[in-house]
Write a protein that binds this DNA or RNA. Structure first.
Lengths: 189, 189
DNA sequence: CTGAAACGTTGACATTTGTCAACACGAAAC
DNA sequence: GTTTCGTGTTGACAAATGTCAACGTTTCAG
């Protein structure tokens, strides 16, 4: 599990920092089952997670308690509620596993410490933030103007694996359409 | 014009950095009319802008060349296409003035120089990035599941000044609904 | 293995929203 | 001042999508 993170860091920085083992030991390992909630709306987000294996769903509830999924994170990616993590304000989103997942978690103190002792770690954080931002912008621009069918085609083109890996219900909530519409439109392809 | 930026930086950092005049002189002043394009999709984004006065629209074209507005930036805020600015990849968005505007622009070299000579400037950049990210996340979570009427109510609650300041056409494109729907629903409030 | 619960599909129907067209109005250009 | 163009409103209609209900299938706990 730790090796996946090691490899990820090496890929990001181009080479391994001298004290990579110190970096890795700052993370704690979590083995989670399906459907475990790791962050609840209103709580303070205490960790940034690296997904070594499995899959996470980042979502909110609307006023009728329907879920809307803002993001789906698969292995070798980072997941957190960065705004809450950074500001220590209550989180506006929920996070849960949608598959059994292995996570590596780092808390604020650990994060702070790495920022100071490992100069390049600051760069990793910036990269995570920039990637998250780029992802959000892309999602807004792609989705605000697309029809339901176009959103499905978009998903098949850019994240095809999700189509077979996840439940229809989850995908529909990620695309912002009803389960029934998703089911019907899939037939028309 | 420069004083607005000076004040903004002081507000952000809590106090003025020693060499604030050096910081301010790194920016170039731009006085623009209405409807001037300062970034075109496909070009590399060369500047980060501080809006001293006026208003900018960040938007994309869909395949029928309709505009969708991702963001509207008013005075005392920062505007750029940060992904393109940071990576020097082609921009995916357009930016134009929607009012006569005074801007303070800083290019990559200036930015890089400030990052090195003014330690706190790094913090400002992080703040801009984090604010932009928070804004995007908020927009996704708010809009993906809202109806047209709910989006209008949202705008009236959270950015009420925009309602009177901007054209209906622009607001509709920001809310992701047609001009006609916007016109009709306004009546039902 | 079995029963309950969740999921996926389909039909019928209501609702929302978009599109096209017409027209009044005001702002900008000449 | 006149003309022209863009904007905002409204009507009629079409298209897209949601909701509710029914039913078969799968999943999972016991």
């Amino acid at each position: 599990m730790v090796n996946k993170l090691r490899q990820h860091i090496i890929d990001r920085l181009g080479s391994a920092p001298d004290n990579i083992d110190e970096v890795l030991s700052t993370f704690q390992m979590l083995k989670l089952k399906r459907n475990e909630v790791i962050l609840t709306q209103g709580d303070i987000c205490k960790y940034v997670y690296f997904v070594a294996s499995g899959c996470l769903q980042v979502f909110v509830y609307d006023k009728e308690m329907n879920e809307t999924t803002r993001d789906i994170i698969t292995e070798n990616n980072w997941c957190s509620e960065l705004i809450s993590f950074g500001s220590q304000q209550p989180a506006t989103e929920n996070i849960r596993t949608v598959e059994p997942s292995d996570l590596l978690a780092i808390d604020r103190q650990g994060f702070q410490r790495l920022m100071e002792t490992v100069p390049q770690f600051d760069k990793v954080y910036k990269q995570i933030l920039e990637a998250s931002y780029a992802n959000s912008v892309y999602r807004i621009n792609t989705f605000v103007s697309l029809t339901a069918l176009e959103r499905i085609k978009w998903l098949m083109e850019y994240r095809p694996k999700l189509m077979s890996r996840l439940s229809s219900k989850l995908i529909a909530s990620y695309l912002g359409i009803s389960q029934e519409t998703f089911s019907r439109l899939k037939g028309k392809l």
